[in-house]
Computed example of a mutant assay.
Amino acid sequence: MTATTAKGRTTRAAQAAETRQRLIDAAVELFAERSYDDVAVADIAKTAGVAHGLLFHYFGNKRGIYLEAIRDASDTIVREQDSDPNLPAAQQIRAGLAAHLRYLAAHRGLALRLVLSGRGTDPETWDAFEAGRWRSIERWSILLGIDPQIPALRMMMRSSIGALDEATAYWLQNGEPFDVESMVDCLLEITAAALRAAATLDSTLDVTAAVNTMLDTCGNE
């Protein structure tokens, strides 16, 4: 195989990946604005600026691209929580939560469907969202210096993420009645309480440092 042929294949692969991502981005945008039934395959292709048939080529059908949009949104939600690794852990957590809330507010419809769908309503959508939740828990645990594999911590951290999601859903459904920074303060208090509850379940746990880190984010900007 010549260098020219290899370069041509690389270029085509890059173009295909770019087209595929454009379709996913368009799907995220449209499903954030409208319900599943109100979005047509033609709408997604038009928004992406690609031929109608390419959507079927890459995703098979509307359900296929919807699931990819959900996975992409879930991955983005997790990535939005990333912040400058050179910042203290407390500031990283606070900045990540604020970015997380702003992303969900900008994609309100899709965010609400993710949070409110429930496993029974759409197991595949729920599984994609749940995987993102566990990645968030693992990231937070690393920053807080705790082990998410300890049963009591695992259960209560998962519970706190669920509470965060429900609080965020209410916030979005009711016109964002509180500013982002106030929401961050509240959500951090919920997480700190969950850590204390884990220590109540498992007396061998010492969560003092982790709780102090959570509360520092509320008071030390």
Rank of each mutant, 00 (worst) to 15 (best):
W140P: 00
L114R: 03
H107G: 01
I44W: 00
F56H: 13
L116Q: 14
T213A: 06
I70Y: 03
N61Q: 11
D206Q: 08
N86F: 09
A40M: 07
I77G: 01
Y36E: 04
E130L: 06
A90R: 04
A16F: 08
E80I: 06
A131R: 06
Y103G: 03
R102G: 09
R119H: 14
T125V: 10
E189S: 11
Q15M: 13
A210T: 02
M156V: 13
S136P: 00
V180F: 02
A194Q: 04
N61Y: 08
Q21K: 11
L67M: 10
G60P: 03
I142F: 12
R94I: 01
Y170F: 14
D72Y: 15
A42W: 05
D216E: 07
S160Y: 14
A198T: 05
E176P: 00
L116I: 04
A193V: 12
G49L: 05
F31V: 04
A42D: 13
M1K: 10
F59G: 00
E221D: 15
R22V: 11
I65Q: 00
S136W: 04
P151W: 03
A42M: 09
G96D: 02
D127G: 02
F31A: 00
M1A: 10
G60W: 09
E176F: 07
A42H: 11
T10S: 15
E166T: 14
T125E: 06
R196A: 06
E176S: 08
K7F: 13
Q91G: 06
L188F: 07
Y36H: 02
I142H: 15
L23H: 01
V207N: 01
A131D: 14
E33V: 07
L54C: 04
A48F: 03
A32L: 02
A105S: 08
A192K: 00
E124Y: 02
A45I: 05
E68R: 02
A209K: 12
S35M: 01
A69I: 04
S136I: 05
E29S: 09
T200G: 05
L112I: 15
I190H: 09
M157R: 09
E29G: 01
E166G: 06
E68F: 07
L172N: 13
L201T: 13
T204A: 10
M183N: 05
C218N: 12
D185Y: 14
D38G: 03
L104P: 00
R133K: 14
E130R: 07
A210H: 02
S203Y: 11
R108K: 13
M157Y: 10
A40W: 07
M157G: 06
L114T: 10
Q149S: 06
D122K: 03
D147V: 02
Q21I: 13
S141I: 05
T204E: 13
A193Q: 09
L97W: 00
Q173M: 12
A106M: 03
A198C: 08
L114V: 15
D38L: 03
A106R: 12
V39M: 01
A13T: 14
M155N: 11
E189L: 15
M156Q: 14
E130T: 07
V115W: 06
E80P: 10
R9W: 09
E124M: 08
L87P: 08
R71Y: 03
A111W: 00
I24F: 05
G109A: 12
Q21F: 11
S160V: 15
Q149R: 05
L104E: 04
A167Q: 14
V211F: 03
F178D: 07
T168P: 09
G162M: 15
V211E: 07
H57Q: 14
N212M: 08
P85T: 12
E189Q: 14
